[in-house]
């Protein structure tokens, strides 16, 4: 996180060494034969399955399916979360009324509502999207509420002295003040959205990496299973890191 670290190249190198060590230990365990290959394939077999899946297999389509599902749900959750969060955050009374309810909804594991969602809308793409939105809305919504609650009282006075309208206060003071919190919330939301996209695929049989790794596991194609897991890990890493960059850029006025 720290800027101006002395050896950013060194830190990166250390990270690579750590990763290489991890793969090497993985290799050693497989080579020792302590774990059956049906459960733990070698790194080479995983890599080959990965390359095969991406080049001649269906992995690209599956990846696209999962990523789109994740992003659609996440964007919808972000939009609704920011709008609702602004509406709640602007009023201290409303904040006080809703705080316990929001805390409960946030603490509720989203997968727990899946049976409810299935009962209500069936095993449809809409259900999966709905569960993703429901599960991933909370970090963004709560961060927005928080961002509004933390507006400096002085700025509230400034906006009153300037006769800013309620809309102008939200748009020009409340939201910009909340932006760093919102982006952080959206980063957390994205992680949840990915988890729920995969769970949704597994449960509702939607085309994607989640369904693919479930099938691979059922058919004891361990290398394919692990290749899918590695790819999902990469999706999570890339999306989270991308938003971290956005977070730093947006909050450049914050020192």
């Amino acid at each position: 996180m720290r800027r101006g670290f002395n050896f950013p190249g060194l830190a990166f190198l250390q990270g690579l060494v750590g990763l290489a060590l991890f793969v090497w230990v993985w290799h050693l365990i497989v080579a020792s034969g302590a774990v059956p290959r049906a459960f733990l394939p070698s790194p080479e077999a995983t890599w080959n399955a990965f390359v095969r899946g991406v080049t001649i297999g269906d992995m690209r389509e599956q990846l696209l399916g999962t990523v789109l599902r994740m992003i659609n749900g996440w964007l919808l959750a972000s939009l609704v979360g920011i709008a609702l969060g602004s509406a709640i955050g602007i009023s201290e009374t409303l904040r006080n009324y809703l705080r316990p309810t929001l805390a409960f909804a946030r603490a509720l594991p989203a997968s727990a509502v899946v049976p409810v969602a299935i009962a209500l809308v069936g095993l449809t793409p809409g259900m999966v999207l709905g569960v993703i939105v429901f599960g991933s809305i909370w970090p963004t919504l709560l961060a927005t509420v928080q961002g509004f609650a933390m507006v400096d009282p002085r700025l509230v006075e400034v906006s009153r002295a300037l006769h800013l309208s309620r809309f102008d206060f939200i748009w020009k003071i409340g939201l910009p003040n909340a932006v760093p919190d919102i982006i952080t919330g959206m980063r957390l939301s994205l992680t949840v959205a990915l988890i729920l996209a995969i769970v949704g695929e597994m449960l509702a049989g939607q085309e994607g990496l989640g369904k693919a790794i479930l099938l691979a596991a059922r058919m004891f194609r361990a290398p394919d299973l692990y290749a899918g897991i590695v790819l999902l890990g990469l999706v999570g890493l890339v999306s989270s890191y991308g938003l971290l960059l956005v977070e730093r850029r947006v909050a450049r006025w914050r020192r």
Partner: peptide, 21 residues
């Protein structure tokens, strides 16, 4: 209530300015 014909300059300037502007 506040009037546009009355402007106020606060002591704590760092809190009274919009840091993102």
């Amino acid at each position: 209530g506040p009037s546009r014909d009355v402007a106020i300059v606060f002591q704590d300037y760092s809190r009274a300015l919009l840091p993102w502007r």
